[in-house]
Write a protein that binds this DNA or RNA. Structure first.
Lengths: 233, 233
DNA sequence: CGCGCTCAAAAGTCAGACTTTTACATCACA
DNA sequence: TGTGATGTAAAAGTCTGACTTTTGAGCGCG
């Protein structure tokens, strides 16, 4: 699943990144590249490259005569896919899933509305196929197969919206959905009403009914929020 | 405005990043670190660090025996603040502003609704202050002063939502708003109705009226979309 | 035609010397 | 005692050169 680290520098990142995002190095604490290089048994050049990347993610700040200081959480590039993966793998995964789900609940309805206007016939067909796949795997403990179709469905919606920023949230949504299946409850089959809603969204998009697609997707989002005990009015 | 490049490596980034995002190096084209280092008159170590950062932004991919290949636009980390800045500075700034504005229109109403539930008294006060500032500067060609208050207003809303992902869009919204003032039309004073809407949002948040805050913010968003000729039904 | 072998190109890694910035302490002077 | 100039050393930053590793591509052989 996770990209196997190729290159020494990537392996260092896979050590430091999760450690920092997990709060193992508290914000404000200072590291020294030389000491780190020695501890992780790599050359300083490799360590410097790793630090540069962490710096570009705003996880740390490197200053002369001071060292590499860990930045406060509020400054991290929390939309960086790698940062998201590290944080989801860490201890505050539940909090992460909540804030990402709230983001989904804001974005996906609008994306669905746009998809209804902009989806190509191919995308409509793909969407219908995903919905059918979801129906077919919604009973009998085929959770993994269901997940695949669910992810594909939401990805198509985001892509079909025609908006680049929405399209790029595909991986994020995939992480959230698979997180729900793997680490959340979800022992039993998915709720039939949720499955039906997906089918109806596919319908609405196919018919170009933007308002209905948006409203139906909003209902799906409300369901996702309720699953995580995030109150709705 | 733009962070003055400190460190040789940052200067290299400020050369390559804009060039790549502007399409000066087309996706698929290949660069060689040695050749680049020579051309930009820096050592290979510096160039390698820069390439690493570009790689972490998914702008390029570095493979042995091949070189550094520019990735297709669809794979870039378009939520990276630096990438956003580079793209906004480039040729397809209009397209960028559109897609970012659509994102805003999805996120900010939900954020405002959450803010109405979660805002602290301090945040409510700050919000009111921003709104008053907007009113005070809405006439007489004080566009810069107005912009400052406008940015502050939206930033407070996003922060007050209590959602980390929303809060991190503050810089993005700031870029969009300042882009509108500086590079768009906006010769004359802002529309009085828009100003009034902001005041009313502040009111709604103060009173904890989530539904009203969300609806009013949605009206603001519609206005922003219309300014860019993005159709509303 | 295809299979495997070899070669070289390019990134990757390392080590060491040197430069630059700058926090901190020290000291002189008011 | 407080304040400002000065010096020092610590840490990041830079450069260079040698070496290793991977791997695409060409070549020859079956």
């Amino acid at each position: 699943m996770t990209t196997q680290a190729q290159g020494l520098h990537a392996r260092v990142l896979e050590t430091l990144g999760p450690a920092i995002t997990a709060g193992e190095y508290k914000p404000g604490s200072v590291l020294r590249t030389d000491e780190l290089a020695e501890r992780l048994e790599v050359s300083r050049s490799v360590m410097r490259e790793a630090v540069r990347v962490l710096e570009s993610m705003h996880l740390v700040e490197s200053r002369r005569r001071v060292g590499v200081t860990v930045r406060p959480v509020a400054e991290w590039n929390v939309y960086d896919p790698q940062v998201i993966r590290w944080r989801l793998a860490g201890a505050d995964r539940p909090r992460q899933l909540r804030s990402l789900t709230v983001l989904r609940s804001a974005v996906e309805p609008v994306a669905a509305g746009l998809a209804a206007r902009n989806a190509t016939p191919e995308q409509c067909a793909e969407l219908t196929e995903c919905a059918l796949g979801m129906v077919a795997t919604s009973r009998g403990q085929q959770l993994e197969a269901y997940l695949v179709h669910d992810i594909a469905f939401h990805r198509v919606i985001l892509n079909a919206s025609g908006n680049e920023m929405f399209a790029h949230l595909g991986d994020l949504v995939a992480e959230v959905l698979s997180g729900r299946t793997h680490h959340q409850v979800m022992f039993k089959d998915p709720d039939p009403p949720a499955v039906r809603l997906h089918v109806q969204v596919a319908e609405a998009v196919r018919e170009g009914d933007a308002a209905r697609a948006e409203e139906l997707t909003r209902e799906i989002a409300v369901g996702a929020l309720q699953e995580l005990d995030i109150l709705a009015p």
